[in-house]
Amino acid sequence: MTVNPLDVPDVTEPYQPLPGRSRTTGFLTEPLRLGTSPSATVGPYLAIGLTWPDGTWAAVEGAEGGIWVRGRIFDGNGDVVPDAMVETWQADPDGGFPSPEDPRGASSYPGFRGFARVATAQPPGEFAVHTLKPGRVPDGEGGLQAPHIAVSVFARGLLDRVVLRIYFADEAEANAEDVVLRGLPEDRRGTLIATPTDDGYRLDIHLQGERETVFFAV
């Protein structure tokens, strides 16, 4: 049967793939172990595909308690990285995640998406995310984690994302109890701790060098 794939655009529902080839259905008796698709760099042209007009707003503009989390990204020469992309993911102020994967149930916090995606193009090397300060989240071992934001950095010259967390300098007590921070050498914890500013917090990210940020294997 010939189908014209351009017949699609007049639908009002989300795009539905065309009928595929026939498949048989069956049970497998042991877990299927598929190799994962290899990661690749976003390259220099990520702005074509990955720029969102609303990317910076993990919390909507004007949200009560809104803060700006900013920072710059530096390479091993100490030069800013003007063609990176930063993504952030975090809990809301009550410690809930707007995700059905949260075993406590997806939270819903007004004006809060929890996710932001921004390029570091303007000003060069700098990212800025508008969000709410996250609450504490159970650590799964009976305690609470300190407030934190999960961060992915993508760029030309990185074949996979690099992952870090942003903690907050004015949460000293919570930070001292945090199971992740406590697992790090004391002299490197500071690379993850953002300092308060007029309108939020700031943390610079160093991809390499003496002050190389602590990156995580997730």
Binding site: R156, Q208, F215
Partner: peptide, 9 residues
């Protein structure tokens, strides 16, 4: 100059 040199945690 971009890929981190330390082993990730």
């Amino acid at each position: 100059l971009r890929a981190p040199l330390r082993t990730p945690v």
